[in-house]
């Protein structure tokens, strides 16, 4: 049995940042494994620990820099990794959901997994759409925003909970093969052990171009173009208390007393 996990390296913006052109300046960005994908990797690794015959493969669209993040997923227990990248992708800049789903689907078709785990969303773009788009491309079943996953291998069915709004969960059975978008909190992602980190260096990390995965440059053509990025004009009209912590705490305390929130 094979589990494919989509892994994205996401960018986080520093407290102080600059925008240059259509994106935040690279100097103001820090890169990390997407929070949701961390839970997706953990869910897959737990399946492989439960059954010897489960192989966990990660797939990433990203530049060489992303290999640090991919090695982290390997150190946590994934068996091997595929990274899709080439000069055309590097030049393309922004990739829309459709392009990402097409590239991931090409890799998934070659891997023929039983289960695909992806994150509910990426912390940076927050499209929340790639996993479900991928399922449709593959002709797989799917479930979005899953916070509990039980596999019945004999029946080829996963019983999951979808986390809806307002503390309501939907109990759903999904026939495999299927894509599940994983919600934070579903498990407790492990830290990579030193041994895991050493082993990860020797695991296979294959780089494939658009051509290698059987597509051509037309996959990058998109009717969706980013036209602007800017800091939103603050809608807020907050009053800021300034000064030392004692001073600001004093102001807040005075406010709370005035409101009658605290009497002491």
């Amino acid at each position: 049995m094979k589990v494919l996990v989509t892994v994205k390296e996401v960018a986080e913006v520093d407290d102080e940042f600059q925008i240059s052109g259509l994106d935040v300046d690279d100097g103001s960005l820090e890169y990390d494994l997407n929070e949701w994908d961390d839970y997706a990797v953990e869910e897959a690794v737990q399946l492989s620990e439960a059954d010897d015959d489960v192989e966990v493969v990660t797939v990433t669209i990203g530049p060489e820099r992303a290999e640090e993040t991919i090695r982290m997923a390997l150190a946590k227990g994934a068996d091997r990794a595929v990274r899709v990248w080439d000069d055309n992708l590097a030049d393309a800049g922004f990739l829309d959901v459709d392009t990402k789903a097409a590239l991931l689907a090409a890799v998934a078709e070659a891997e023929a997994p039983d289960i695909v785990f992806s994150g509910v969303q990426a912390g940076d773009d927050a499209n929340g759409a790639t996993g479900v788009a991928l399922a449709e491309r593959l002709g797989f079943e799917w479930a979005a925003v899953v916070n509990d996953f039980e596999l019945d291998r004999d029946a080829d069915v996963a019983s999951v909970r979808r986390e809806l709004e307002g503390g309501v969960e939907e109990l759903t059975d999904v026939e495999l093969p299927a894509v599940f978008t994983i919600q934070t909190g579903i498990n407790e992602p492990r830290y990579a052990s030193l041994r895991g980190i050493r082993q990860a260096q020797r695991k296979e990390l294959e780089v494939r171009t658009i051509d290698d995965v059987g597509l051509d440059e037309s996959v990058l053509e998109s009717p969706v173009d980013r036209t602007d990025m800017y800091e939103p004009a603050s809608e807020g009209d907050a009053t800021y208390w300034e000064g030392s912590p004692e001073e600001t705490a004093g102001e807040l305390a005075a406010f709370l007393r005035d409101e009658g929130v605290v009497s002491s």
């Binding site: 259509l22 990025m229 939103p232």
Partner: peptide, 14 residues
């Protein structure tokens, strides 16, 4: 919005 709401982006859909 993008990057946890720190920036806004516009997209043209043709």
């Amino acid at each position: 919005e993008q990057y946890g709401g720190k920036v806004e982006t516009t997209y043209q859909v043709d």
